[in-house]
């Protein structure tokens, strides 16, 4: 019986273009120190990470692209801790959520938030003015969301803005399904109250289409 040549997966796929490899293979190659594989992972999962951060932090956060870089920096540092139990995308998205949470907490405590507060108040004050220009409704909703607790805010954002299902949300937040559902329900109620307090009367479906510039 002759000696069998052991072919490692990384050697086997060494000559394959990273863009043609599956995510698992890319992760394995990145764990072995292949920078090209990690860059491919970055380009592949950049859009979901940007979307998650945009939904969580709102339109007033200018540093989303920096946060994406930070997210992938953390992923790169902790790549050896990724065991491959779940999908790489979910792992990166969880890092992004944690970063967004800490950034949100830091900016709320910052003294600079007192500095630009009048502009934010003015932006929120007029609900129907210049809808297409700077997303005032989104500003207002995020202003209302800021009054909610962190758990309720995150549940509402993930369910309503990002459109995750309850199952995905419960796995993302690490809570039972019913807890996630109850958080969404309570968050919605509180948000509705906050919006009404800011002068946003309940809007019917036809007005939504009108605000979006769609024909009725």
């Amino acid at each position: 019986m002759g000696e069998r040549e052991i072919v490692r997966p990384a050697q086997q796929t060494a000559d394959v273009e990273p863009s043609n490899l599956s995510t698992e293979m890319l992760v394995r190659r990145a764990q072995e120190g292949d920078r090209g594989a990690f860059e491919e992972l970055y380009h592949r999962f950049y859009p979901p990470v940007v979307k998650r951060l945009t939904h969580l932090l709102g339109p007033a956060s200018p540093s989303v692209h920096d946060l994406v870089q930070d997210t992938f920096a953390q992923a790169y540092q902790n790549l050896d801790r990724f065991r491959g139990d779940g999908h790489f995308c979910h792992w990166v998205l969880r890092i992004a959520s944690n970063l967004a949470r800490s950034t949100y907490r830091r900016t709320r405590r910052s003294l600079w938030s007192l500095w630009d507060r009048p502009e934010r108040e003015a932006m929120v004050a007029s609900p129907l003015k210049s809808v297409d220009e700077t997303y005032p409704t989104l500003h207002a909703v995020h202003h209302g969301l800021a009054k909610l607790s962190a758990t309720l805010r995150e549940a509402v954002v993930l369910f309503e803005m990002e459109g995750l299902s309850l199952a995905e949300m419960s796995a993302e937040l690490g809570v039972p399904l019913h807890t996630a559902a109850s958080r969404v329900r309570r968050g919605r109620d509180k948000l509705r109250g906050e919006l009404e307090r800011m002068g946003y009367a309940p809007l019917i479906q036809g007005q939504v289409a009108l605000c979006n510039g769609e024909p009725q």
Binding site: Y46, L138, L177, R185, L203, I204
Partner: peptide, 29 residues
């Protein structure tokens, strides 16, 4: 999830914000 009762109707402002947020996320990505 199907058995969990979650009211599907959103308030109009929330629906509008959802559309705007998705549009913004698409633009950024």
């Amino acid at each position: 999830e199907a058995r969990t009762k979650i009211p599907q109707e959103r308030s109009g402002w929330l629906e509008l914000a959802r559309q705007q947020s998705q549009k913004l996320a698409r633009t950024r990505s």
